[in-house]
Lab assay of single mutants.
Amino acid sequence: LRLEVKLGQGCFGEVWMGTWNGTTRVAIKTLKPGTMSPEAFLQEAQVMKKLRHEKLVQLYAVVSEEPIYIVTEYMSKGSLLDFLKGETGKYLRLPQLVDMAAQIASGMAYVERMNYVHRDLRAANILVGENLVCKVADFGLARLIEDNEYTARQGAKFPIKWTAPEAALYGRFTIKSDVWSFGILLTELTTKGRVPYPGMVNREVLDQVERGYRMPCPPECPESLHDLMCQCWRKEPEERPTFEYLQAFL
Rank of each mutant, 00 (worst) to 15 (best):
L250V: 07
T23L: 13
Q231R: 10
P33S: 12
E54G: 11
M75G: 05
V128H: 04
R172E: 04
L80M: 10
G18R: 01
Q43Y: 15
V71R: 01
N148E: 10
P198I: 07
L80R: 02
E188Q: 00
T187K: 04
A45S: 06
K77R: 13
T24V: 07
M229Q: 09
E149Q: 10
G13K: 01
A40S: 11
R194D: 03
P38G: 09
L94G: 06
Y213G: 05
M200P: 02
P33E: 13
S181Q: 04
Y170H: 07
G18H: 04
L92F: 12
T187S: 07
L1F: 04
I68Q: 02
L186D: 00
P38E: 14
E44R: 02
D138N: 00
E236D: 10
E44L: 02
K176P: 12
G18V: 03
Y110M: 06
R25L: 12
R93V: 06
V26T: 13
A137G: 14
V5W: 15
A156W: 03
D120Y: 01
M48K: 01
G8I: 00
F158G: 00
T23P: 13
V63H: 09
K49M: 08
Y110A: 07
V195W: 11
P95T: 08
A124Q: 06
R203A: 09
Y170K: 09
E220D: 09
R122H: 02
P198H: 08
R194A: 10
K29R: 01
T191L: 11
Y170C: 08
R143D: 02
K6Y: 15
D82S: 09
M17E: 10
F249M: 07
P222R: 08
T163Q: 01
E239H: 15
Q231T: 12
R25S: 11
I184C: 11
K176Y: 14
V71K: 00
K157D: 01
T30Y: 15
L132R: 12
L56H: 06
P218T: 05
K49A: 05
A142D: 01
P165T: 14
N202F: 04
T187N: 11
M36L: 03
S37P: 08
Q208W: 15
R211A: 09
Q154P: 15
L186R: 01
N148Q: 08
K55Q: 12
L7T: 15
I28S: 13
P165S: 11
F83V: 14
G10I: 00
V128G: 04
T190E: 06
R203F: 15
L7G: 15
E210Y: 12
H118Q: 04
A61P: 02
W20P: 09
M200I: 05
I28R: 03
E188F: 03
E220L: 07
M108K: 03
C11N: 06
I28D: 00
W233C: 08
T23R: 14
E236L: 13
R194G: 09
W233D: 05
V128I: 07
P33K: 12
G155K: 03
V195M: 13
C221V: 08
W233V: 05
E130I: 13
